[in-house]
Write a protein that binds this DNA or RNA. Structure first.
Lengths: 341, 341
DNA sequence: CTGTTAGCGCCTTCAT
DNA sequence: ATGAAGGCGCTAACAG
């Protein structure tokens, strides 16, 4: 049996089809009598307005698209949660475009903002390269970048995290504890996805070392694919250096867990033999007692949606760039080095 | 500047609007010459077919809706990953309806399958109550249930997990190690969301104890809100009993972590003083060396999509119920009880 | 091969 | 207050 349409309802209720439409949309200019009449038929026929038709007519989709790389990673989940919860307070639906390949990345970045499947697009952690800009500039729906940036994109709404400062804070903390040999384990700094976080945190790391007058040793920076196991292997490698670091700053909590594993493997006590600092403050960090740099994941998602809504309501709003602060959370994986130096 | 429509393209290319449509949809019956011509105009005008209009015309949305409670929980992420990855191989988009309140639950269960925003719906972990059935029965798109069940719903496609068996396996393992006093810490067995997993696992737990001839003591079963901290508190309570259990089976890995914390708090060594078994085998379980019951999270999502696609292709397909197996993964948190008994 | 036309289901003037 | 008609952008069936 075919789904009832607005026409069926109109016919059955003996009214014009425009009247039904008015009832659906709560127009005040319809007599209480006919309203009740129509309402009755609607529920009798189990009528639901077809959202697609309405979207076409209205020119709105009432959905927000989110483009996010590797959405299962805890940090992304945190952002998505902020987005979802904020959206849930509204009438908007949420569609997710997960990105795990470069090809998909390009498709999403170039097409999602143009095909008008959504009224707005939030792009997470994928900083547009210069060649992506034309596409974004021609987007016909508002776009906001979360945890992504591009100096040329001052005309886009952005929520950015000061990762340079975050890296600096983490490193400075270790320096403050007396560490001189501090390692940094991260994702590859240069990837096709153009992630900036590891890069920025590295900049902060270097900056902190420099201002502390500590020499930057290249063997103390190891990069690899993102992941706990990968970080574990890198940490093993670094800790097996002739002169190993006394502290390691990991580009994420997940990677910090790998470092912790490596330390355990080598019978190094944390924090006595090795200090470890993570990044993100994902949920498990508290459980592990991991010292880490907290970034406002949930908040970044929420802000992204709010920014989007603001421009949705008033398209003439000037694009803004909100910077979210980071904060050091000291727990039990950091301490002064045992043997000074 | 308004977005270009198919009409603009047609006019600019000096062809009929149907021809443009054919080019877009790769119809073979277009001369190579005009095709090129049209293609040129399309890229010149940066034309993108409006998906909404196409959806209306085609009667398909090319999107799949997923209704999922508390989507940030690791187990749900695992299922979502299976769904997303499978969908990514297709042309379908994914829209997510997160459920965190009963109200939202009802809306999603009753309306999503009827409003035709998606060509198919996957419902995760929300077992329809009897009063929900009429709505599901009147759905005008295929629905598949993942990790959810209802005996009355034999006409629905389902992917179910044998949680009773899972609970049995876990408990039997502990019994096999010689434990006689085995606790169970879980979510509330009865909730408005009608989650069945904790209930089923409890049934398995009881069944295993019974067949081992072990008395079931009510003080060895504690329930509370889902979560690590809540489980931590429950575990503290249970371990402070005059005669505490020597082993605890937790309804999820997350809750098992809480138990581990409690043990640590009470200076109980795991597994020497206390054995702990979790459920799910989420990623952190391996890191923690947690003995747990693995369920095929990713696989359940994948299967759900496959089932959906199958009925999408052939609506006359008989609904099937696939049962996914569970498997015990023994790691380092279980051992024979120290003092026999 | 290609132009034209009739819907898809709904919303919104415009008259009445 | 309400019915009728035009249009949202596209697809598909129908002529040519």
């Amino acid at each position: 049996m075919k789904t009832a349409t607005i026409r069926d309802v109109a016919k059955r209720a003996g009214v014009g089809l425009g009247t039904v439409s008015r009832v659906i949309n709560g127009s005040p200019q319809v007599s209480e009598a006919t309203r009740q009449q129509v309402l009755a038929v609607i529920s009798e026929l189990r009528y639901f307005p077809n959202p697609i038709a309405r979207q076409l007519s209205l020119g709105k989709t009432l959905t927000i698209a989110v483009v996010v790389p590797f959405f299962t990673r805890p940090a992304q989940i945190g952002r998505l949660q902020g987005i979802e919860n904020t959206l849930a307070e509204s009438d908007y639906d949420l569609t997710i475009y997960n990105v795990e390949t470069v090809k998909r990345r390009d498709i999403c970045l170039h097409e999602i903002p143009c095909k008008k499947r959504a009224d707005g697009v939030i792009i997470i952690s994928l900083s547009p390269r210069d060649e992506d800009i034309p596409y974004l500039a021609h987007a016909d729906v508002p776009v906001v970048l979360v945890d992504a940036n591009n100096p040329l994109l001052s005309q886009l709404n952005r929520v950015v995290i000061d990762d340079v400062e975050g890296g600096r804070i983490a490193t400075r903390h270790l320096v403050g504890l007396g560490h001189q040999r501090i390692g940094y384990i991260s994702d590859y700094l240069e990837t096709a996805f153009n992630f900036t976080s590891s890069r920025d945190r590295y900049a902060g790391y270097r900056s902190a070392l420099l201002s502390a007058g500590i020499e930057i040793r290249s063997e103390y920076h190891l990069q690899g694919e993102h992941g706990r196991c990968e970080a574990y292997l890198l940490a093993l490698q670094m800790l097996n250096l002739p002169v190993p670091p006394t502290a390691i700053f990991a580009a994420s909590d997940t990677q910090a867990m790998g470092v912790l594993q490596a330390a355990d493997e080598l019978d190094l006590k944390v924090p006595d033999d090795l200090s470890v600092v993570g990044y993100d403050d994902i949920e498990v960090a508290e459980y592990l007692g991991l010292t880490t740099v907290r970034q406002l994941l949930y908040e970044s998602g929420r802000r992204g949606v709010e920014l989007l809504f603001k421009t949705l309501l008033d398209p003439t709003t000037e694009p803004t760039c909100e910077t979210l602060l980071t904060e050091l959370v000291v727990r039990n994986t950091t301490a002064p080095p045992k043997c000074s130096g």
